[in-house]
């Protein structure tokens, strides 16, 4: 019921495609190996959700149902967990998912300007929305834990440190 990360309808892919199960073949083996690390199946929940996101780009209701089934949990339980953690995408996101830290330490070093520059240069217009070309989604995040390198941004799995508004076009050029 909170504001979704990306408004449905702005998603360029993934939202309406039929769900293909993740935990078969290789990923199933990977999960089985993970399960050996913990005394309970439930403990593999966060890793399993990460796998769904890695394979499908986001964690859909179908993904939640599949994880619930393989870990012998209920979908409602899994959903409660998914919605607790901000890094699981509950909606499809752009090809490049950009997270900008704007918490105070970065905030006082110009993070707001970085956000504005990113929105302008990606064409995403608004936070949480995906650019019309489906490439970029920009969101503000709370402390990325790299405060000495203000402003850090994360583009998918990649960390880019010490970004300033001026450097934004240069940073984005690598992902064009």
């Amino acid at each position: 019921m909170s504001t979704p990360l990306a408004a449905p309808g702005h998603a360029s892919h993934g939202a309406h495609e039929p769900y293909v199960k993740v935990f078969t073949g290789g990923p199933r083996k990977e999960l089985d190996e993970l399960l050996t690390r913990y005394p309970t199946k439930m403990a593999a929940l966060l890793p399993a959700l990460w796998m769904v996101q890695r394979e499908r780009g986001w964690v859909s209701e179908d993904g939640i149902a599949e994880v619930a089934e393989v870990l012998e949990l209920t979908p409602a339980y899994v959903k409660g967990v998914v919605t607790f953690y901000t890094m699981y995408h509950q909606h499809p996101v752009g090809k490049y998912f950009i997270q900008v830290c704007t918490t105070s330490p970065c905030g006082i070093c110009g993070a707001e300007d970085v956000v504005k520059a990113l929105l302008k240069h990606t064409g995403a217009v608004e936070l949480g929305q995906t650019s019309p070309d489906g490439k970029f989604t920009v969101i503000e995040v709370e402390c990325l834990g790299a405060c000495g390198f203000a402003t850090p941004i994360m583009i998918n799995e990649e960390f880019v440190e010490s970004v300033t508004a001026d450097k934004v076009p240069e940073v984005l050029a690598r992902f064009a």
């Binding site: 309970t40 403990a43 607790f84 901000t86 995040v141």
Partner: peptide, 22 residues
């Protein structure tokens, strides 16, 4: 690997998270 929650730095929250809970 955590999944985005400051509070998991609190020791008992971390344990819950590790167990696959909120």
């Amino acid at each position: 690997k955590g999944a985005g929650a400051y509070i998991c730095g609190e020791e008992t929250a971390l344990m819950n998270s590790l167990e696959g809970r909120r």
